[in-house]
Amino acid sequence: MPDVVDVVLRCVLVLAVFMVLPLVIGQMEHKAMAHMQSRVGPMAAGGFHGWAQLLADGVKFVQKESITPVAADRRVFELAPAVALAPYLVALLAIPLGPFFGQGNLIGQDLDLGLFFVLAAMSVGVLGTLMGGLGSGNKYSYIGGMRVAAQLMSYELPMVLAAASVAMAAGTLSLVGIAQQWEPWWLITQLPGLIVFFVAGLAELQRPPFDAPLADAELVMGPLTEYGGMRFAMFLLAEYAGILVLSALTTVLFLGGWAGPFSDHIGWLWTLVKVMAVAFLVIWARVAYPRLREDQVNSLAWKVLVPVALAQITLTTVLVVA
């Protein structure tokens, strides 16, 4: 089909995935977290076990007034949600879904440097929460912003190192290439890298147990305190889109992406199943573990994750060269 139509179709598909899958993950979080806590979660919205709860939330947020505090730095405050959200949309462009009934890979654009592109996009998203914390004109947001800066900076390094280890084993930075080069024994040899990547990713997203910046018992809501209405919804969508990007990256890098029976035809389905499984792990970690203290967060990054990631790179180098 002509190029323009192809490009537009891909963009529309990526946008559709970006709007729908985070909501699915959000609803899964509502229900899975509820049942883990011996309760049922939303039941009323939409009739059948509250499937439309997040849609109802979206409608509620849209009709709310977006207030900017007087002491806030107006432009910084108002731009922060967009800066937090847009990078995840951009990152989704390069993440492959897998073969679609023999038609080739479903992907926005297969970049040679796909891995670096996605990691770079995720690191820009950091600035969004930071701007929110700084620009709110609120002590608690300020402290939350400082915690965000320290945490996200510390955890970028182990994440990049763990991803670099897989790229080394595959010999390419392209995400499609890495998924195609995947071998089942990588589950064992890359296991430390998988754990480091997953934990560092959780901390990048400020998901519990790493939500010290948003600690609601201590900081109200940290950098998000002064946000309400559509801007707050953007931040929340950014969090769930981040979970989607993290799960998709973990799947494609460490779990083989679309590997599985009949992967030529339903490879995309395997990827989706694995992405949802990893997202379930993210939700499970939230329910099972208490929040880490700020100094524990930093010492975990520098004293545990970075050495393990470096050891993983050494191991991968030995395996690749040998």
């Binding site: 899975a32 509820a34 049942h35 883990m36 806590q37 011996s38 309760r39 049922v40 499970w284 329910v287 099972a288």
Partner: peptide
């Protein structure tokens, strides 16, 4: 513990 709770019927 959390997984066991997930598989049990909720008390709501």
């Amino acid at each position: 513990v959390t997984f066991k709770n997930l598989t049990r019927r909720s008390v709501t």
